[in-house]
Write a protein that binds this DNA or RNA. Structure first.
Lengths: 152, 152
DNA sequence: GGTGAAAGAGGCCGGGT
DNA sequence: ACCCGGCCTCTTTCACC
């Protein structure tokens, strides 16, 4: 059982804000020796609580400033396994959820601009996935998740 | 102008996969000396291309395994500025977008479980934000963004 | 689990091409 | 812009508590 006590939580928060903080620095904030902090982080990583150390990138710098949601109903005869495979591989897809309600999937896209939506939908179509779909543009985002390029 | 050439891109990808990689290690992959890699990273951070070094955390470990989308129509008399302020502050809200279509906002929630949705909606209501809303549950997620606690 | 010290690695920063 | 090299801080390990 991965307990994650208050100290672990504090460590996680500090790492989330700046994962390059030194162990000594973190140790000061939680009243622990650097080696103890190190051991806790090691355990958090080993147990999968911390999935990875990474960087958050400005979407615009990667030509992915446009956020788009697409509701998708798969074709009756679509290969759902292949669709999930596709979703996991395509770098344009930031999230893909099987959802309740009238549609089967909700996909979140990060694209260069609105014109790239058409290409995406046409890709879905030519792979025989697409039944119907509905597209929603994000105009502005009071709260926006940062981009983290999905790795190999 | 922040140019971001191919080498920068490669560096960003490597850091995204594991931001603790050593400069020497990265340098080998892009045929650059550690100090040159360091300088490029410094510039990427300074120019805002890299927003921060952080950690991606297992949602379940933070009691936020449940992903929910809420379509919101604000009340006619709602204080939209206050709403945006609220959205930015509430830790349950992972994303909040002003969107095209029938609804005004799309909110993405990360909650402990489905029962926490009701509490969230009631909070929206008592703050006089909520006109109508529609809730969509994510049942499973072929592609899921990792959680990064929003820090102070 | 936590500690502290010792050792080793890695980042940092000058000067040079 | 990039490379080299020396300093020095930080991580890592380990025997002990």
């Amino acid at each position: 059982m991965s307990s994650v006590d208050k100290i672990d939580l504090k460590i996680i928060e500090m790492l989330a804000a700046d994962s390059r903080r030194s162990l000594a620095d973190i140790g000061n904030s939680v009243d622990l020796a650097p080696s103890s902090v190190n051991e806790r982080i090691r355990r958090l990583v080993a147990s999968g609580v911390i999935r990875r150390f990474t960087v958050e990138v400005d979407p615009a710098a990667l030509d992915r400033a446009t956020q788009i949601y697409v509701w998708v109903a798969l074709r009756e005869d679509a290969d759902e396994g292949a669709f999930r495979e596709f979703a996991g591989t395509d770098p344009r897809i930031e999230e893909c959820h099987h959802v309740t309600g009238a549609w089967s999937y909700l996909i979140k896209l990060r694209l260069k601009d609105v014109s790239a939506v058409e290409e995406f939908l046409s890709d879905l179509k030519s792979a025989n996935f697409l039944g119907r779909s509905e597209t929603v543009l994000a105009l502005s985002s009071p709260v926006e998740a940062g981009v983290i390029p999905k790795g190999a």
